[in-house]
Design a protein around this nucleic acid. Sequence first.
DNA 1: TTCAACCGATTTCAAAATGCAATCAGATGA
DNA 2: TCATCTGATTGCATTTTGAAATCGGTTGAA
Lengths: 168, 168
Amino acid sequence: MKDEYRSGCPINLTLEILGDRWSLIVIRDMMFGNRRHFRELLTHSEERIASNILADRLKRLMEKGLITKADDPSHKQKALYSLTEMAIGLVPLFAHMGAWGRRHLPVSEELSIRAELLEYGGPAMWAAFMEELRAIHMGGPKPDRSVFSELQAAYEAVVAGKKAAVPA
Amino acid sequence: MKDEYRSGCPINLTLEILGDRWSLIVIRDMMFGNRRHFRELLTHSEERIASNILADRLKRLMEKGLITKADDPSHKQKALYSLTEMAIGLVPLFAHMGAWGRRHLPVSEELSIRAELLEYGGPAMWAAFMEELRAIHMGGPKPDRSVFSELQAAYEAVVAGKKAAVPA
DNA sequence: TTCAACCGATTTCAAAATGCAATCAGATGA
DNA sequence: TCATCTGATTGCATTTTGAAATCGGTTGAA
């Protein structure tokens, strides 16, 4: 648990915490897939993370303050993982990563519809989504708009093979 | 040189290309430090990249289409590395990474002044910087505004211990 | 009460990535 | 001639990652 950094550059510090192949995948699934338990994160992801890597990343992300862990009252062994404000602050970053990936890499249609909506929705949509995430993960006030539902509906519409009617 | 990806998710694809501790450091130094040669990238960075890692990343980034390599006419052994449109498209991502790092991590004052300016400058400033990068790296038309100079001047002002007067 | 299924991990071991130091051959310039 | 600089490469130790099996406790249905 060394707390020495290579430099005080904001880009470098961000990379030292998030610069690997799995950390942002875990946060992505918690954020956009609403997966809150170990098993959900382990089995419901396309990329097939190994259980030891998942356990390690959850621990690291907790140490760095991006997520918290709590007992799930419904099951004595279940742990409920939640995003902190620090992780919720990554929404714009995810939006830009998605936009860049969509523009330059061989994305699939189903898995990029969310990125497309987030890109066109812009900062207003990101802010609404962040408010919603605060409600879900931090007990904040429940907002009127559910960006999560919009994204989910669009995804399911594409999977069903229909043209998704983008909500106004 | 396998071209198989874990999934078609834009976030995942972006991570598979940029998700390590060094790739974005190299691009950052080319972009914000205007370092174009192997030696410059090797020695002028705070984070002290190893020469074999640098060689490997330059090769990888070329294969993925983020940078190009050309002979430097001034020296038969010198190679000149340039950013492509793909890498220049990362400017907004760097801006958000810098903003997030500045907010949540122990950044140093000198090394975060650029991130601060980029954050307050917003999309207009990012676009101007991208135009300038196209001029420098891709032979595009030279723009009137030099964001690079603004960032560099602000950095040097902080290093000199003065309060930087943020250009209007 | 039994028991299979599920819970969040941990263990083991092989493979790959990383880090460091030394080194390389060709080009340059004094 | 020769020290210096160029973009790398090599060898080797350490660290990280990945896959599969396993762990002890919990749950809910038979």
